[in-house]
Design a protein around this nucleic acid. Structure first.
Lengths: 242, 242
DNA sequence: TGCAATATTAATCGACCGCTTGATTAATTG
DNA sequence: CAATTAATCAAGCGGTCGATTAATATTGCA
């Protein structure tokens, strides 16, 4: 029997949902670190975003966080679980905000729900984060990558974001009661693509437009994206659509 | 000095444009391969598409192609050049088709150029390929990944696809002479995102819509995407846009 | 103070990485 | 047939990968 508690935890292999080494206080014996843990998450977020999940080693994350690679496995067990933690951290924040934004819009608009209003309520919280911190920009670019990553990328996205998307569509449906579901979903698919490419913040559009568009210029993007998508929704979901 | 010709070629390091090991017959000594080379490209295309560039090893490509890893470096020198070869192969085909499609549309529509027509001419050749072979589907999903890949992803996309995009915008401009360039470029940005997410063929939309949308159903996608994007272009580029 | 849980490290494991080497095979041409 | 050269392989290079281990340092509470 080993005396080390952490390996003991690992040996039984993530049994239930959270093999977290956090203070699970039968008796909280020590000021749990929390600090290094967050630092690891920050660094992993940046590296995954800048280079992609597969191009980043746990060693590289450890070094940049000023820790050893063993610490990463101590707090997160596997590289994949480290990624999941990175992804979930801000997804939870974002989902709360988006839901609240949609709720607020629906409440204040009463029966006068508009497609523009719903889409704006959906997009604004996310895009606003791009103007906030580097960390949020790293995270959102990571979301864009994951959304186009084969294998488990799709599952991560579905698990994290589908509920709020269904909520968005339900609000839009109030603005267009005659719309067929298939068309609503296809329209969302197009909107989603536009959003993800924006979150990626590659400077493709900057170069293509010879500097006339700046991919970080949220104030320019948000109103245009709202109008673009709303017009798109109407054109394929509206009464005129065959 | 080594007797082996291939390493000798490598030692001077890709000097000019094409260090192709093809028969450059001062005296053609053997029935040049061409066969294995294509097989390697096919396999690399599939693996890069399915797992991502960084998750695929040259050894894995070699094994799946029924060759040794040395053969990959013999034909392509480095992993990155193998990728570039994979990417360029079908990009060249696609660009010729897209240009021809836009030319043909402009010619046959005369002065009655429409936004819908231009966008259709731009999208149709690409989407049609998705119904053709597995190879094309692998390739197009790879394009979607690269378009959201940090670091050198953006440069690869720009180098390969920017000319035909400028051509598209020039045709659209004929349909909307009053449109400001900034708006045209932002509108294309949104269209591009929608297209890339479609090419990725993750089945996110399939699950989200509970099977009502199928991401492989090009006949359903093309007309909707054309209408969606055209309405979007008009809404932010049109005379009504402030 | 002692004890048990947490936090951390250095060392290590086997597998795999991109890439290179030296040699061999096979086709072609003079 | 001898010279030439593309095509191929088995083996190996130095290095990194994710993950584990055993030992130790630190802490909070009884």
């Amino acid at each position: 029997m080993s005396a080390a508690p952490a390996p003991a935890l690992k040996n039984v292999k993530k049994k239930a949902t959270a093999p977290s080494p956090r203070a699970k206080p039968g008796r909280p014996p020590r000021a749990l670190d929390q600090d290094l843990r967050e630092r690891i998450l920050d660094v992993a977020e940046e590296q995954f975003s800048k280079h992609g999940y597969d191009a980043v080693s746990t060693r590289a994350v450890a070094k940049a966080a000023g820790a050893t690679s063993a610490m990463i496995h101590y707090y997160f067990s596997t590289k994949r679980e480290l990624f999941d933690a990175v992804f979930a951290r801000r997804a939870d924040i974002l989902n709360v905000e988006r839901m609240a934004s949609l709720d607020a819009y629906e409440k204040r608009s009463g029966k006068d729900v508009s497609v523009e209003g719903a889409i704006e309520a959906f997009l604004a919280p996310t895009l606003a984060r791009m103007d906030e911190t580097e960390g949020w920009r790293y995270y959102l670019a990571l979301v864009a990558q994951v959304g186009h990553k084969p294998q488990w990328g799709g599952e991560v996205m579905t698990r994290s974001f589908d509920p709020v998307i269904q909520r968005l569509i339900s609000v839009i449906r109030k603005a267009m009661p005659e719309a067929a579901d298939v068309n609503l979903y296809w329209a969302y698919h197009f909107l989603s693509g536009a959003l993800l490419l924006t979150l990626a913040e590659t400077d493709r559009i900057d170069r293509l437009s010879n500097g006339q568009c700046r991919s970080a210029d949220i104030d320019a993007i948000l109103p245009r994206m709202v109008r673009f998508a709303a017009a798109g929704f109407r054109s394929i979901c509206g009464a005129a659509a065959k």
